[in-house]
Nucleic acid binder design. Structure first.
Length: 599
RNA sequence: GGGGUAGUAGCUCAGUUGGUUAGAGCGCCUGCCUGUCACGCAGGAGGUCGCGAGUUCGAGUCUCGUCUAUCCCGCCA
């Protein structure tokens, strides 16, 4: 029995037609005589009617149906009596009176409700074990559709912009300086391993040398790092690279892509160009390289106020070259001791010694540190932070980057508390896109005492800073850019180095990679630059995060059909799993004793 | 590797200071019910309180360990 309509389609226009429908039984309402069945497919619900006065045998068949069974019916579309019209359903004006019922599959009782509201509350491990049931929920079906539309918008846009989609290998070689990789043993090359690509970075640059000029790919990437709500071991990036492009052109290109996706998926007009913020400003004002600018509570630098303070903790921090940072959590003076303890714990976990605060309550400042402040200092604080009755102010005194990071994190947690108390509301339809720019090219790796690439070693320095590479490496800015949305890092990229000599200098002189190691890992790349490499640059956007935001969910597990748990397992298929001795022998692999014991 | 939260019926949860037979809603089963759409009404079944030790006359409750999920730190060029 082929269907003539889907379950979200029929309206009173179709009254009188004979139709075939097929789908899952969503619910059954058996009145002893008349029976109503809601039939569901991915498009919607349609009410079926079985009336024993018309067809007693059929009604008896229907009375033994169970929810989630798959059935097909043939029947006639009829108008519902006026008083029984269901305005909540698209198909609520009609019902289909069944004449023939075909039961494809009777379902067992599902282990959890297949229902948007109730299903959301079910333990995630159970949902993941029965993922095929979880995904039946209309909410998950909407996410599938969002993901599909976002992908299609991306492909359409880049196609129109003259880009070619090129697939690159998953099986690459190990490049240990980045994220930890998944290794794949090589049967044909005993003792050697592939690594699954963390990203197509090096291949896409080779495509530029190859003259492709404009490349993109919805690329699967693999990283063997610990998982988070926004990190899965395999994930998808919108990856692109383009020759003869500068930063300004890149911003415009990606703004066009984002506008296209938001329009196609949400029918929302995104305003471009996006705001831009230098990295240093982002850290100073928001304490993060991915600032959430949807609310204020910006940080203030108090170096000047406390430069000559009697308060030794602040004064000595400044003297040692550190910074005093603070922000005003507007209206949070009533935070409880428990909440304050929690914030303090958070600050400590980030390396702060504690969390200094002032609560402006009942006309006075309650604080363990305010007694050390002079009248001038208090006046300056009140003015700089705009302290009013009912506010809470938090302080961090530490090395500049730690002070910023700690305050940035406390700012976000304070915002969560204010949201919970109903004093801060963020419009769910608000999208604060932001380019964070002017990143340092290098960061000092304290343990090793050397510089490593802040982004990756192929990022080009800002041209006017190249001279500083030898004299003052920390001051060199990279041509790197991050795209941030509502405090989430959507992606990042850079204009790349395309000159052999500069790339070699960076590998060997700046990153101190031994020449033979550089040759082994990147030799082919350096060689290629000797044969006519165009200037080029690119970016990669986290497609899962993007779809999560478009769908209003906080975990990318919700936008991946079959995600892994925090331990990297798939509960539905029970992977990973053991393999046979023969498989191991073929791969020239022996298990250690600890690995054997776990079996 | 570290810190937090959770684990009690199929699901979501409650369970007081350690004290009789561990409860509720939904779901499930049975019966009744001809206009419901969270149908209704009546009745019923259903429990290794994650697992293992310990303290105690007595443990869902306290202690230790462990497992699983989740959030975070480290990590993610």
């Amino acid at each position: 029995m082929k269907r003539t309509h889907h379950c979200g389609q029929l309206t009173k226009e179709s009254v009188g037609e004979e139709v075939h429908l097929i789908g899952w039984v969503d619910s059954i309402r058996d009145h002893g005589g008349i029976i109503f069945v809601d039939l569901r497919d991915r498009e919607g619900l349609t009410q079926l009617v079985f009336n024993p006065e018309d067809n007693r045998a059929l009604a008896e068949e229907a009375s033994v149906l169970k929810p989630e069974s798959v059935i097909g019916i043939r029947g006639t579309v009829g108008p519902r009596p006026e008083e029984t019209i269901n305005r909540k359903l698209v198909t609520g004006e009609i019902e289909v009176t069944a004449a023939v019922l075909e039961v494809h599959n009777v379902a067992q009782t599902p282990p959890f409700p297949i229902d948007d509201a109730k299903g959301d509350k079910v333990n995630e491990d159970l949902r993941l074990t029965y993922r095929y049931l979880d995904l039946r929920r209309p909410k998950m079906q909407r996410i599938f559709r969002n993901r599909h539309r976002a992908g299609k918008a991306t492909r359409d846009y880049f196609d129109e912009e003259g880009f070619l989609e090129v697939e690159t290998p998953f099986l690459f070689k190990s490049t240990p300086e980045g994220a930890r990789e998944y290794l794949v043993p090589s049967r044909l090359n005993p003792g050697e391993f592939y690594a699954l690509t963390q990203s197509p970075q090096q291949f896409k640059q080779m495509l530029m040398v190859a003259g492709v000029e404009k490349y993109y790919q919805l690329a699967r990437c693999f990283r063997d790092e610990d998982l988070r709500a926004d990190r899965q071991p395999e994930f998808t990036q919108i990856d692109l690279e383009m020759s003869f492009i500068d930063r300004e052109e890149m911003y415009a290109l990606i703004e066009g892509l984002i506008r296209r996706i938001w329009k196609e998926v949400l029918d929302v007009e995104v305003t471009a160009p996006f705001a831009r913020m230098p990295y240093v400003d982002a850290m100073n004002r928001y304490g993060s390289d991915k600032p959430d600018t949807r609310f204020g509570m910006e940080m203030v630098d108090l170096g000047e106020v406390f430069a000559k303070s009697e308060f030794k903790v602040f004064a000595s921090t400044l003297k040692a070259g550190g910074a005093i940072k603070a922000f005003n959590a507007k209206g949070l003076a009533d935070l409880t001791q428990g909440e304050l303890n929690h914030l303090t714990e958070t600050a400590r976990s980030l390396g702060a010694k504690g969390l200094a605060f002032i609560k402006a309550e009942k006309g006075e400042w309650k604080s363990p540190i305010v007694k050390f402040f002079s009248e001038d200092e208090k006046a300056a604080l009140a003015e700089k932070l705009g302290i009013e009755e009912g506010d809470s102010v938090f302080f961090a005194a530490d090395e500049w980057d730690r002070a910023c990071t700690v305050m940035g994190r406390i700012r976000l947690e304070a915002a969560e508390l204010l949201k919970k108390k109903g004093r801060l509301e963020i419009d769910p339809g608000r999208y604060d896109f932001l380019w964070v720019v002017d990143f340092p090219l290098l960061v000092l790796e304290e343990e090793a005492g050397r510089y490593v690439a802040a982004h990756h070693p192929f990022t080009a320095p800002v041209p006017e800073d190249i001279g500083l590479l030898d004299s003052d490496p920390r001051a060199v800015r990279g041509q790197h850019y991050d795209l941030v949305l509502n405090g989430v890092e959507l992606g990042g990229g850079s204009i790349r180095v395309h000159q052999q000599a500069l790339q070699k200098k960076l590998f060997e002189d700046v990153f101190k990679i031994p020449p033979e190691v550089a040759e082994d890992r990147f030799g082919y790349m350096l060689k290629s630059f000797g044969y006519g490499a165009p200037p080029h640059g690119g970016i990669a956007l986290g497609f899962d995060r993007l779809v999560a935001i478009l769908s209003g969910v906080t975990s990318i597990r919700d936008v991946i059909a079959f995600p892994k748990t925090q331990k990297g397992q798939c509960l539905m298929t029970d992977s990973p799993g053991p393999v046979t001795e023969k498989q191991l022998r073929d791969l020239h692999i022996q298990l250690t004793d600890t690995a054997r014991e776990r079996e």
